[in-house]
């Protein structure tokens, strides 16, 4: 059973993630809607996989990963973004993100990301 944390300021986007998450994949899904709540939830549940939205008010998804990695998290990070600029990709790659998914979220995209983590 994997523990998954999905961080997105949009309730719609979190709902879309749950809807498209493959039922057969053994996992529990927790949510956070901001940088602060993501840091707090990650500390409590110690997730194995964290799906991060890039564009959030205040600090972005890459900031969340940077803080968590700095505090010793061993989670795998996956970035969601409609903004696939080279600068964003470079930042994510430098931090060792497992995969970058272009928004909108679909089932196929989630499955392909999970495959990289558990082939």
């Amino acid at each position: 059973m994997k523990k998954i944390l999905v961080v997105d300021d949009s309730a719609t986007s979190r709902l879309l993630f749950r809807m498209h998450f493959p039922k057969e994949y053994p996992a529990t899904i927790e949510e956070a809607n901001s940088y602060d709540s993501a840091i707090a939830r990650a500390g409590e549940i110690r997730p194995d996989i964290i799906f991060l939205d890039y564009n959030m008010p205040g600090k972005n998804g890459i900031d969340v990963a940077r803080t968590l990695i700095g505090s010793g998290s061993s989670a795998k990070f996956i970035l969601f973004s409609a903004n696939l600029q080279q600068g964003v990709l470079d930042d994510a790659q430098a931090l060792g993100f497992t995969k970058i998914i272009e928004k909108p979220i679909t089932k196929e995209k989630i499955v392909s990301a999970l495959k990289v983590i558990t082939p």
């Binding site: 300021d9 890039y54 928004k103 909108p104």
Partner: peptide, 24 residues
């Protein structure tokens, strides 16, 4: 709109050859 505007930002960054961020 967030997705739409982000896609527009991506296009603009290619054109401007600059990192373009957009607020939610």
């Amino acid at each position: 709109m967030n997705i739409s505007v982000s896609k527009a930002a991506t296009q603009l960054s290619v054109l401007l050859n600059d990192k373009i961020q957009m607020e939610v």
